[in-house]
Design a binder for these strands. Structure first.
Length: 653
RNA sequence: GGGCCCAUAGUUCAGCUUGGAUAGAAUGGCUGCCUGCGGAGCAGUUGGUCGAGGGUUCGAGUCCCUCUGGGCCCGCCA
């Protein structure tokens, strides 16, 4: 909190100074300079140089002498200690470090929600992620989606958004029919071999049956029959299909929960289809003039969305035979998320998840409704974020535009702040040349290969987690030979999950992740376990300190924080002070990676402190107490940052 | 043909939204540091025409334009 206070004060003081000089206040930045120049730095003099036709250094000197120094004299309570001009033209500030340390550490020690600013003010935010077709097991590409979505959910929740997480289940498509054909008509065993999860088994059948279609037109015919049955929804085949998708879905959820991902609601496509939501949405589109019936041209007889910007084509919504296209089917769901159509669903408790929360599911059976007491209010989001890979960007852009028209705002100008639909896209996870080779694909000179579920070219999510766990198991075992194996297993699993979660969020969304099985096994350097290790180290110090009460803030030891003056302590305090600004930025710009970056940086700064500054071996007991408080505050801060990215704090590892 | 994204050290990436002080990590290679609060760590060293060219600016990795290379998208499929 306090770093923000410092920045705010600095910004305000400078703006006041400039306007009292009779100048227009231009855009200027407050940033952290290389440390020899101070704690904060301002470029205002550069920005004014042109307007005033004078050298930046002169301007900086004038601002300081005439305005800033008198301000500091008049305000001894300021967080700013001193201010200096630099030849180059910067205005450099030094912070009143004792004040910063005491404010920061007190806050970090006392506030369990330290670093979680109220950005959302309760804004209802709907996040959809995962949404894997229920015909296969998750692969590493799905992991990126689920982990990204879950991390975003954690960040939004921490910043006081009222978050609802949706997982969309497309249970009525061709991919589902394929599994039914494989099990019913192609002679594959109904049960997977021992040790193979049902979703994984079906994923294999999906590959095989698609191969078989090419040489067996009879089965291809069966596929059409099955699809028809599924869509009509009454037959025994349809019941079988829904049984299969439910079983696959349950297996997929086990994998997701293993990654510490959670949801609030499952939406089933089949129910959206029969709920009449499409018909209602279509009425809305017609009424608003967004859907246009074509009487001539290549789309004659279709309802289309007209192109509204360059480079786009008209988009067919309803074919000339009256059926809705794929994109059209997404509109009612999106409209439902925003509360633009009446909610046709009842809700029932599907199951309880790993974190104790209830996972709900939609149903059209009113008698099955569990939601009478305390209506969960899943839809009508004020802000809707849909996480799908960037290949869908074009369609999502159209949907987003259509919805912005329906809510009466201009999407681009955010005129309607209360109904916002965002597509959060991210680049693909591809396989490295080495990993592709291990799957039997030689890709020659290419750097990477795109995965394909249908061709069987993918790396299974559970396989990766198992691999990581066994690697972590070895490491834990050698370091803790006396631990019971069950405890080693549990710890190894936590390390594995943290490693993969960190790995999936640490880089930017628009960067392709080239997944390499061997590289993914790293537990050193810029990884999740690095954070856990720094945390565990801090906890060992606290555990070994003779009197745990020494870091209790109620001892009135704030003045003692002034003893934390080595550059390592100062750097650590300043890093701790930054968390809430980082989290705010992450929530506003939907940027999970910023939190990962920060956590890594915080852990690095602590490791440096750990190396250079003795705590338990310090002979001055006042200084030791202050350092213990710093270590405690660090641990709490890192823990809060790790919680946002789903990296588990471990006492020992 | 049209649209979107990427290009920074051998490799994987920060930094670009909001231009500013010697471009930072990790990893790999080489070298040190455990009778010391946990060596999953720390330190040193190696390694960069910030894809190319132009422009704007007092100042460009960052903004604009062009080009090159790579990826994705553009159906009355889903």
């Amino acid at each position: 909190m306090t770093f923000r206070l410092l920045v705010n004060e600095t910004r305000r003081v400078i703006a006041d100074a400039v306007s009292s000089m009779g100048c227009q206040v231009p855009d200027f930045s407050i940033s952290e300079p290389p440390k020899e120049f101070g704690d904060l730095s301002c470029n205002i003099a550069f920005q004014l140089a042109k307007q005033l036709r004078r050298r930046p250094f002169e301007i900086a000197t004038q601002i300081i002498n005439i305005h800033l120094k008198p301000y500091l004299e008049a305000h001894p309570e300021s967080l700013i200690l001193s201010v200096e001009p630099h030849q180059a033209g910067y205005i450099n500030f030094r912070v009143n470090y004792q004040r910063l340390a005491s404010n920061t550490l007190r806050e970090a020690l006392q506030n369990p929600r330290y670093g979680y600013p109220d950005v959302g003010k309760g804004l209802h935010t709907i996040i959809e992620h995962t949404s894997v077709n229920p015909n296969k097991a998750l692969h590493v590409g799905h992991m990126r989606n689920a982990i990204l979505g879950d991390t975003l959910h954690r960040i939004m929740k921490a910043t006081n958004h009222h978050v609802t997480v949706l997982n969309y289940v497309d249970d009525s498509g061709l991919q589902v029919a394929d599994i039914v054909v494989a099990l019913k008509f192609a002679g594959f065993a109904a049960k997977p071999p021992d040790g193979v999860k049902f979703d994984q088994y079906c994923g294999e059948l999906y590959v095989k049956i698609n191969d078989i279609y090419e040489s067996n037109p009879l089965l291809a015919e069966k596929r059409k029959l099955v699809l028809q049955n599924i869509e009509e929804g009454k037959s025994e085949l349809a019941a079988f299909a829904s049984e299969i998708t439910r079983r696959i879905l349950e297996e997929q959820l086990i994998t997701c929960w293993r990654m510490k991902v959670r949801y609030d609601l499952l939406n089933f496509e089949s129910q959206i289809v029969v709920s009449q939501m499409w018909a209602r949405s279509f009425e809305l589109l017609k009424k608003s003039g967004l859907a246009v019936f074509e009487t001539e041209g290549k789309n004659r007889g279709c309802w289309v969305i007209k192109a509204h910007e360059g480079g786009e084509d008209d988009k067919v919504l309803v074919r000339s035979d009256g059926t809705a296209t794929y994109m059209a089917k997404d509109i009612p769901y999106a409209a439902w998320k925003l509360g633009l159509v009446e909610d046709p669903f009842s809700y029932f408790r599907f199951t309880v998840q790993w974190d104790g929360s209830t996972l709900w599911a939609t149903t059209l059976d009113k008698k099955a409704d569990d939601s009478i007491q305390g209506n969960p209010n899943f839809n009508s989001g004020e802000q809707v974020i849909t996480i799908i890979d960037s290949r869908q960007a074009r369609l999502q852009k159209i949907i987003s535009w259509v919805l912005s028209q329906l809510t009466g705002g201009s999407h681009n100008q955010n005129q309607n702040q209360n109904h916002r639909y965002y597509h959060l896209g991210y680049e693909a996870v591809t396989l490295s040349s080495e990993t592709a080779k291990s799957l039997g694909m030689d890709i020659g000179d290419k750097q990477f290969m795109h995965m394909s579920g249908r061709k069987g070219l993918f790396v299974n999510a559970d396989y990766i987690m198992d691999n990581l766990r066994s690697k972590a198991h070895e490491e834990v075992k050698t370091r803790n030979p006396s631990w019971p194996d069950e405890h080693v297993q549990r710890t190894a699993e936590e390390i594995a999950i943290s490693a993969i979660r960190y790995n999936m969020v640490r880089q930017d969304l628009d960067k392709i992740i080239t997944f390499d099985i061997k590289e993914s096994l790293s537990l050193e350097g810029d990884t999740g376990p690095y954070l856990q290790y720094a945390y565990a180290r801090s906890q060992r110090i606290l555990e070994k300190s003779a009197n745990p009460a020494v870091y209790n803030p109620s001892f009135g030891m704030e003045e003692q924080f002034a003893a934390l003056i080595s550059e390592y302590e100062v750097t650590l305090v300043k890093e701790i002070a930054r968390l809430d600004m980082v989290v705010e930025e992450a929530a506003k710009s939907l940027s999970p990676k910023s939190v990962a970056r920060y956590a890594y940086s915080l852990a690095t700064v602590f490791n440096l402190f750990y190396e250079k500054v003795p705590v338990l071996k310090e002979s001055d007991s006042d200084i030791m107490r202050a350092r213990l408080a710093l270590v405690k505050a660090f641990g709490l801060t890192l823990r809060n940052a790790m919680a946002l990215i789903g990296v588990t704090p471990l006492e020992k590892m």
